[in-house]
Simulated scan of single mutants.
Amino acid sequence: MPTNFPLPRPPRLALLPFLAPLLLGGCGSVVLKPHGDIAAQQAHLVIQSTLLMLLVIVPVIIATLVFAFRYRASNTEAEYTPDWDHSTRLELMIWGVPLLIIIALGAITWISTHKLDPYRPLDRIDAQRAIAPGTKPLVVDVVAMDWKWLFVYPEQGIATLNELAVPVDRPVEFRITASTVMNTFYVPTMAGMVYAMPGMETRLNAVMNRTGEYEGLSANYSGAGFSDMHFKVRSLGDADFAAWVDASRKGGEALTRAAYLQLEKPSAKEPVRRFAKVDDGLYDLILNRCVDGTRMCTHQMMAIDAAGGGGKGGVEGVRHQSPANGQRTYVAALCTPANPLGLPDTAAR
């Protein structure tokens, strides 16, 4: 019989643990070596937690190998104690060390949860520099759409599509929402990911400490165009940021309510676009889901509900009594704000 049998090839999945560090090398270099103070603190937290957990993992792995080698069947010199059932020293080690590590991890997590709260205004630019008193953050309104990102700069009166520019060493306050489905706003080199949800607003306070061009992305699956939902992130010096704003004002188009309704339609791989002018209050209309003027804004609905509702039980919330003659009047209709789209009066109610 032949003796030169071919050796079986290892399954491809068996090579995954060896290839994983290479495949994740690019991601790890950004996440663990970011250029923003919030992301740097988060990276430090990840490293610190990993090292604490390795205090248990590494000794357990070493002990497993040592025990397997020392008490192998062929080692007749190893001590054989079949009646052994307890060791106080071993029990203290097995339970005490992990307990101390869990306490340490709990303390670190509790402190970091409050210190790195995305809603918490920043108190420093980096580990060496505090924020000067009176410094106002740059406010950027973020809208996650299918499948693109809209950034509105209320202070500058401009907007961009799939491009985010921020000045270096200046705090940035992101106000984040979505047009249709839940998404995730993520700039790995700046801060951790924050969810964007329709009809709701989440916030993120962050800062960039180095100039350059980076990548932002969506980290939550939102449909067919999700994989192309990327945007450019430019960290610029003060002079370059001012020049970028001026260029957007001169070379951009107007982002009206009607233009937004067209932009909101699903599309993928949209090029960078800049808008020189934005309709007043557009972000609030997006947040309250009433851009088209055909429905009541959600904040109006919530105000009515807070007053008792619009039905019989909420009559007191829509009543007005004149102080002059005591005459009572009641709200007979509920209307949306102005109707710049030129919709019929009946459709704007």
Results as ranks from 00 to 15, higher is better:
Arg274Met: 13
Val97Cys: 05
Arg234Tyr: 09
Glu77Thr: 15
Trp95Gln: 06
Phe69His: 13
Ile108Asn: 14
Leu116Thr: 07
Leu23Thr: 03
Val168Trp: 00
Met302Val: 08
Val315Leu: 12
Pro137Asn: 07
Met1Gly: 14
Phe275Gly: 10
Leu255Ser: 01
His320Gln: 12
Pro59Asp: 04
Ala20Pro: 01
Leu13Trp: 15
Ala239Glu: 13
Tyr153Ile: 03
Leu19Pro: 08
Thr76Leu: 11
Arg210Gly: 00
Ala242Thr: 10
Lys265Glu: 14
Leu19Asn: 06
Thr160Ile: 04
Gly310Asn: 12
Lys148Arg: 11
Gly25Leu: 15
Asn162Leu: 00
Gly237Asp: 12
Val152Leu: 15
Met1Ala: 14
Met145Tyr: 00
Met145Leu: 11
Val166Gly: 05
Gly199Trp: 00
Gly192Gln: 10
Arg175Ser: 04
Ala254Asn: 13
His320Val: 15
Pro167Phe: 04
Glu79Ile: 14
Cys335Ser: 15
Ala191Ser: 15
Pro266Ala: 05
Thr160Lys: 08
Gly308Trp: 02
Pro21Ile: 12
Ile61Ala: 13
Thr88Gly: 12
Ala243Arg: 10
Gly25Cys: 09
Thr256Gly: 10
Asp146Cys: 06
Ile101Asp: 00
Tyr283Ser: 02
Glu163Ile: 08
Tyr195Glu: 14
Ala78His: 12
Leu122Cys: 05
Pro10Tyr: 05
Glu264Trp: 01
Ile94Met: 12
Ala159Met: 02
Asn209His: 01
Asn288Arg: 08
Ala78Gly: 01
Ser29Tyr: 13
Ile62His: 00
